[in-house]
Design a protein around this nucleic acid. Structure first.
Length: 163
DNA sequence: GCCAACGTTGGC
DNA sequence: GCCAACGTTGGC
């Protein structure tokens, strides 16, 4: 059982879009970075935990959790010329790119903004918080995962109290 | 819109 | 194998 963080631009595909998918499940296509591909191909297992992150949002934030619903398999969108992420080097016989399926777990009552995450000592060293970090599929340690979930719980109860 | 950080490409 | 040029990501 491992833990991951997946980045998405909410304008492109937000966690709310994921909630609208049949069975709240979708395939995670379009990853065109070798390091990220390798994580999906070699390490992701069904049941692994996923932090869902909105990049380019205001503020950028972790907005919920998901689970890996299907382990790495060929990303067919790389083969379709009309697709954004088309890669002519990828073929059906030797696909270069991988995707996984994810299933929505929970949407946080309050998004956990980057600025607030940076203040949390337990998250020091988290890849997401490293300056210049661009990796769209990142491993997350178990302590980091637990810290984030705890923060989400706290934020949720704070919102309830305020009402 | 700016720009730093990063990955990839291609000439040599 | 080096490295400059380029394109992209993503916070601000």
């Amino acid at each position: 059982m491992r833990y991951w963080l997946l980045k998405s631009e909410p304008d492109c595909f937000s966690i709310h879009d994921l909630a609208k998918c049949p069975k709240k499940t979708t395939y995670w296509d379009g990853v065109r970075n070798y390091q990220a591909r390798n994580f999906m191909r070699d390490q992701m297992q069904v049941g692994d935990g996923v932090l869902f992150y909105h990049s380019g949002a205001n503020p950028p934030a972790i907005v919920g959790t998901a689970k890996i619903a299907k382990a790495g398999y060929a990303d067919h969108t790389a083969l379709i010329a009309s697709e954004n992420h088309y890669d002519p080097k990828s073929t059906p016989e030797e696909p270069i790119w991988m995707m996984v399926d994810i299933k929505l777990d929970q949407i946080f009552a309050e998004p956990l903004g980057l600025d607030s995450l940076r203040k949390v000592a337990a998250l020091d060293g988290m890849e997401l918080l490293r300056k210049g970090s661009r990796l769209s599929v990142q491993p997350v340690t178990k302590p980091q995962w637990e810290t984030v979930l705890k923060l989400a719980g706290k934020a949720a109860s704070a919102v309830k109290k305020a009402k």
